[in-house]
Amino acid sequence: MTDTHAHRTAASRYLRPSIVPMIAWLFLLPLTQGCGLIFDAVHQVYPVTINEMDKICRRQQVQVGMAVEPFRPFVFPAVWTDEGARVTGLDTELVRAVSDALTIHCGTPVVPALHLVRFRDLFLLLNEGQLDFFVSAVAAGTPSPGRSGFAYSTPYFSQGGIGAIATRPEVIDLLQTRVRTAGRSTPREQLLSGLTVAVQDSTAAHLYAEAKIHAAGVLVCDSLPAAFEHAAAGLSPPIDVIIGAHPVLNFMVHTTRRDWQLLAKDEHTPLWFTLADYAVVMAEESYTLRWFINDVIFHLHESGRLEQMRHRWIDETYAYPRRASAEGLPFDVQKMPAHYAQGTCRAASPH
């Protein structure tokens, strides 16, 4: 065998493994044009794999979304401190626990880059890939076409279903009478028939109202403060009932909105409209990150810290601005003007 022939033989052996997939690709290309299958064919020949944990470690930041509207005690109103703008609450402590665990996992400091935006925009930003995950007392598994394509972590808070509050005595009396006289099989939403019900835009309560409440008027408010302001100003139509996250409403009527009353079946039983757990929201394909956050929540639970966090934020008496100054998360100050635009209420679109 000549040196030239040996060289060609070796070259053919070297090139053959890379040529075969290329020939397969050239053969498939005419078949895929016009059928929207080009990416699928590339994916079959050269599988695309993205590890979201590696991306977080490389940039040393985890992109976190949080609602600019307060969901006390999970997310409090943002405040100015000597160190700058800060936000605090149970959910911010959870975010810090996740970022601390990421620092250990990555072997380098990982800081949370907080995006404080409208609650209704959190799902959009996550869908666009601008966030790794978000939190804001989000009820896991709420049925809605708009919630498809998202995944939820292990719950970090239970008993987070929908409750209701009212302030006018005649409305409270009417609802208490309906609760007493309603049969066990009476759909819960029928208790609200003929009333005007306020909900916060895009929350689980809003989705519940769209799916269930057909015999009552529904006002969609940009935030809970907007609903309270609408009611206090005596605007038309007057709000009879606000439905929303039960633990948020319960916290508010015992702290900042003592003129409102949490509706109950009796002295010891809250009036629930749904049951739900709160979880961290991620993209459906973020499997590695979801396993990681599930592990963080598991260890928080096993160590007793998760229960301590719940007690600390829900049961203790405290001044949240002081906690924000001491332990709050910083965020982009350009979001501060949007924070104070609590918005308004408007009639819900017809079903």
Rank of each mutant, 00 (worst) to 15 (best):
V171H: 02
A216S: 10
E210H: 10
V179Q: 07
V179G: 05
V171Y: 03
E210P: 08
A211H: 08
L175R: 07
H206Q: 06
R188E: 07
P225G: 10
P187Y: 12
L195W: 04
L191P: 05
T196F: 08
L219Q: 13
I213H: 04
V220L: 03
A198E: 04
A226Y: 01
A205E: 02
R168S: 12
D201P: 03
S193E: 14
D173Q: 11
T203V: 08
V197P: 03
T181D: 12
A205M: 08
A205V: 06
I213M: 01
S223Y: 08
L174I: 15
E170D: 13
T186D: 13
S223F: 07
E189V: 11
L195I: 02
T203R: 02
D173F: 06
T186L: 14
L191G: 01
L192C: 01
L175C: 06
V197Y: 01
G194E: 14
T196I: 13
A205C: 08
A215C: 08
P169R: 05
L219E: 09
E210L: 13
I172W: 07
R180T: 09
A227W: 09
V179C: 06
A204F: 03
I172H: 05
V199R: 04
P169G: 04
A226H: 07
R184P: 00
Q176A: 14
L191T: 12
L191D: 03
L207D: 02
R168A: 14
S185H: 11
A182V: 02
T181Y: 07
V220N: 02
A227L: 10
A215T: 11
G217D: 04
L207T: 06
V220W: 04
A205P: 03
V179A: 06
C221H: 07
L224R: 09
H214Y: 05
S185K: 14
E210C: 10
K212E: 06
P187M: 12
G217P: 00
V179K: 06
R180M: 09
A209D: 02
L195C: 01
A205N: 07
V171T: 12
G183N: 13
L191E: 06
L224D: 07
L224E: 11
R178Q: 10
V220F: 00
L191C: 09
A215L: 15
A198G: 04
G217V: 03
I172Q: 08
T196D: 07
S202A: 15
Y208N: 00
S193L: 13
R168D: 14
Q190S: 12
A204P: 02
A209Q: 03
T186K: 15
H214G: 00
V197D: 01
E189Y: 07
L192W: 00
E189H: 10
P169K: 03
D201T: 13
V199W: 04
Q190R: 14
D173G: 08
